[in-house]
Design a protein around this nucleic acid. Sequence first.
DNA 1: TATTACTCTACTAAATCTATAGGGTAAAAG
DNA 2: CTTTTACCCTATAGATTTAGTAGAGTAATA
Lengths: 136, 136
Amino acid sequence: MLSKKTKYGIKALVHLARQEERTPVQISTISKAENISQKFLESILLTLKKNGVLGSKKGKGGGYYLLKEPKDIPMTTVMRLLEGPIAMVPCVSLNFYEKCEDCPDEKICAVNKLMLEVRDNTLKIFRNTTLADLSN
Amino acid sequence: MLSKKTKYGIKALVHLARQEERTPVQISTISKAENISQKFLESILLTLKKNGVLGSKKGKGGGYYLLKEPKDIPMTTVMRLLEGPIAMVPCVSLNFYEKCEDCPDEKICAVNKLMLEVRDNTLKIFRNTTLADLSN
DNA sequence: TATTACTCTACTAAATCTATAGGGTAAAAG
DNA sequence: CTTTTACCCTATAGATTTAGTAGAGTAATA
């Protein structure tokens, strides 16, 4: 299941990408437009900012804005920041690899085999889909 | 994340598929071989039985066995029974569809668009992968 | 200098996961 | 008829995650 955090994050990013100009947009504006709890959205935008996806401006006329062009923001970045690993099992994760305790040998493991294929395909989609693709 | 329930279920099914003969295998045997808590495994095999994947035999020489050939058991069946929806979001689920409360129009929704593509790809893999494929 | 908006910490209510523990019942084989 | 094993049910519980809420603090801009 996709968490609401990620869902809201994507919606907010798309909202920003759909802006004509790259002027800052207030949290409250996005929150109302996308039906997201303002405080929750605040924490989401903050992690996106800390990780170089968004910039922010304080004071009057402040808000959040994209730091890169939508076409240069792949969904892998967004998913990893908000949702965490893309793989369904840690033993097939690229960025969050962990060995299974219960599994004697990954090369023989059926679950590993299956989930590796799923990860490869999902990763391909996230890599090839940018914020620009979702904003049309 | 894949739940342990599903993970254990797949491992147990593969264990059964790898048997030379289709004679019943005891829960305790599978539990030991695959490092799975016996009671937990019991409940997993029970749901697989209730849904037509496994058969069981009581008493001495009893246990669980596959009701179909491994090549006739696609992973879609197993995933849906144990893990639930294959889609990451209910609004793109085939078997567990639900409308999002916060979303005014699915056709415009970026999350919907992205997750629909992911679901299509994942589904294709699960449909084309059978228990036989995992048992080699 | 007042307003607006971002920053940060802490807390919480509810749900889900992953079991564990233990009871009893039913069927099949020897 | 006795043993074995599956079936079925309830209750408990620690850990983690989710989806927020509350409130105080800080910084920039008009």
